[in-house]
Write a protein that binds this DNA or RNA. Structure first.
Lengths: 128, 128
DNA sequence: TTCGTTGCAAATGTTTTGCACCTGA
DNA sequence: TCAGGTGCAAAACATTTGCAACGAA
């Protein structure tokens, strides 16, 4: 990978993601960054989101429901997706990395990582 | 949901998926079904894949790398995605449904299901 | 006859890319 | 200076949808 140069757009995307816990989509990020940098383009947002998630400074969340979402929280955690309102919530659960051990049994490839998404109905949707 | 009527297109998609263990994409399925039904349209393939996965007769696999894939194997299992060749393989591993228990702790919503994808390098790619 | 299903094509939604210009180091 | 970054617009992709005709029950 090439050497990174500073860019205020990239910094601002990263800074924005750190302030949010709702895992916004590229478009939501674009709308928000535009308030500070009205000329930023959606392409730049996508390019930087891809770059940042490639180098592990943010997380890309692909749930299978709707567009990708992004997360600035690097603390290891898993996500819950509400089937009703599509909200994505952080789960405060114990580490389950041990599931990689049974996954590697009877398998001759090399397992390096995993993702888990939990689905159901969120607290708010249960009430309404 | 409305009452289902028989359709040879839908049957043939389902039958095709049962013969495959490589989790084909909608487009691959389309290409293959076309050999028997040259007039089938890609829209019909997508409609039936969505329908079949809605009623639980097939599985939709969204790994975050490339287009969705589909699986006719309903036996509970998890998938491995090769970061190098993008192949999706079945993992023959013990049941890990117990991870839903820790996931539900400290969480007030209702968790009904989960998916897990394991990533790494497949056996073939390790050799080459 | 009814209503789910299909083929076709157009539209949609999301993401990527080419290119000329800009900017950080 | 120069490679990386940006804005813009077009393109690429994957998927969905409207509609008139078709076909199963």
């Amino acid at each position: 990978m090439a050497i990174l140069k500073y860019s205020k757009q990239r910094e601002s995307i990263k800074a924005f993601l750190i302030t949010r816990t709702d895992h916004p989509t590229a478009d939501t990020i674009y709308m928000n960054i535009r308030e500070k940098y009205p000329n930023i383009s959606l392409g730049t947002v996508y390019r930087n989101l891809a770059l940042l998630s490639d180098i592990g400074e943010i997380l890309k969340i692909t749930t299978g429901e709707g567009p990708d979402r992004f997360d600035g929280n690097l603390h290891p955690h898993h996500h819950f997706v509400c089937k009703k309102c599509s909200r994505v919530l952080d789960l405060n659960m114990e580490n389950i990395d041990y599931i990689m051990e049974p996954a590697g049994k009877n398998f001759n490839g090399q397992i390096n990582s995993y993702v888990t998404y939990f689905f159901g109905i969120c607290e708010d949707c249960l009430k309404n």
